[in-house]
Nucleic acid binder design. Structure first.
Lengths: 268, 268
DNA sequence: CAGTGGTCTAGACCACACT
DNA sequence: GTGTGGTCTAGACCACTGC
């Protein structure tokens, strides 16, 4: 592939890309390197479901041939995608689409850990779904999910217990359209982590998330559900989870009991 | 540099490395790629203070010549180091040692943000040092810092206020030896972030940190200092900060008021 | 202009997994 | 052995910075 065209983007790098977007007007010329374009193309394949979570994607040489670039360029694109946890490389085997299921990393977004003792094998939580209903999005929820107020959403409430102690009370909201058909039975019957179900049943893969933490006091209702006295300090965790393209697909509000657990975070 | 030697590590890659460690006995052969060895060598230079925070390090070609490897290999080593925030690349200028000062990122490890309004320009906190004393490490502190109980440590207490509202009460402990000479006056007179002072005055650069968060209720003492009623829910943040080589250099326990701020975390 | 990091290529060889 | 990702090289050219 030649890069003779100077400042602005050279011609589209792939043969199979009708260059869907790129409205028309001259915005920022914004030179973008070839490997970034390759990255976008792979990303498009992931979004389009060409390769599903857990799938093996084509080898680097194959992709290089398809996109008419060198293996090194494909490699750099895949490097970044795997650094972002979208792909997983396995030497000798190939490159796979990351998934929330199967891996030993069951709860990839749950940062709660038992204090001290820290049995590396965190006891599998005891999950209980309290509620699952379809309703029109209140404005706050709509805003978080990038919807218009009144659009349908699912609301789920559940409790997680460790060693019989209710530790997490969560309410979560999902956009109605992509999750059409969700039901309490489906959630209750599914054994694994919730995000694994989202992948297998709805083809929705959560890629990253933003969390906002606060310390709060248990109100009457949550205290009752978690068998605590009102006023008990709880960690409030609000999460927006995004799928490909930074599209919000879940808003979650959790209350964590932290007298025997803590929220672990690594800074760098 | 030739890589003819097969499985085990090839001969040391640099000319100026007396191969200090590598005890003797055959542990794990553990093949390590060239770029990892280069990375270690650069890291050693950083630890040894050959280049200090903010300094320009030699160019890729210079390092390649010095270590007798190709530019690409040095590049990959630097890529990783800059991904770990130890180095910062600036196109056209060179590669610099990362620092907590100068950058616009004043509080690199502080995850507390104002709610909603979120003036991107977070008001510079009003810092007040309450105490700074030298004492013998209690066993818990010693354990956190990798010291023996009774070894000297500094204990500092300070309050951060935003818009006049006391929001963070922190106690922190530093090992006595590396921080010899620390005083309340020094802390109080220094304008910028604390980690910047550690770099400039003690040559200690914090590289990464581990935090454990819990929700707690304000006790009498902290309530009084923060002008709250006892029982007010506070976010407890325990941090161990590490310098190069995963050596712990600070233990910090903070209480955050979170009624108008939140702790922000990005998951991926 | 020269010097730096950033991108891209082409080719060689190594380490690992499967058959 | 074949095919995969992983490492390493050498050289070309581009983009940015500052003299």
């Amino acid at each position: 592939m030649d890069l003779t065209t100077p400042a602005t983007n050279p011609k589209a790098p792939a043969s199979e890309t009708p260059a869907a977007s790129e409205g028309g007007a001259a915005t920022t010329p914004a030179f973008s390197p070839l490997y970034q374009q390759i990255k976008s193309l792979i990303l498009r394949g992931l979004q389009a479901g060409e390769w599903k979570p857990g799938d093996l994607i084509p080898s680097e040489l194959e992709l290089a041939a398809r996109f008419k670039v060198s293996q090194g360029t494909v490699r750099k694109a895949i490097d970044e995608l795997s650094a972002e946890n979208l792909l997983v490389r396995r030497q000798g085997k190939g490159t796979f689409v990351a998934t929330h299921s199967e891996q030993q990393v069951q709860y990839r977004f749950l940062r709660l850990e038992p204090d001290a003792g820290s049995r590396a094998t965190q006891v599998p939580a005891d999950r209980r779904i309290l509620d699952c209903r379809r309703l029109r999005a209140p404005s706050e929820i709509a805003r978080m999910l990038g919807l218009r107020a009144g659009e349908p959403v699912f609301e789920v409430r559940r409790v997680l217990a460790f060693h019989g102690v209710p530790t997490i009370l969560e309410d979560l909201w999902l956009p109605g359209t992509p999750f059409k058909g969700l039901s309490l039975e489906m959630l209750a019957s599914h054994p694994g982590a919730m995000y694994a179900l989202f992948e297998s049943q709805f083809g929705v893969r959560m890629v990253r998330a933003d969390e906002k933490l606060k310390a709060v006091s248990a109100d009457g209702e949550s205290a009752q559900i978690m068998k605590l006295t009102p006023g008990f300090p709880l960690l409030s965790v609000e999460r927006i989870a995004y799928t490909y393209n930074d599209t919000p697909m879940e808003f979650r509000r959790g209350l964590y009991r932290t007298d025997h657990h803590h929220y672990h975070n690594e800074l760098s």
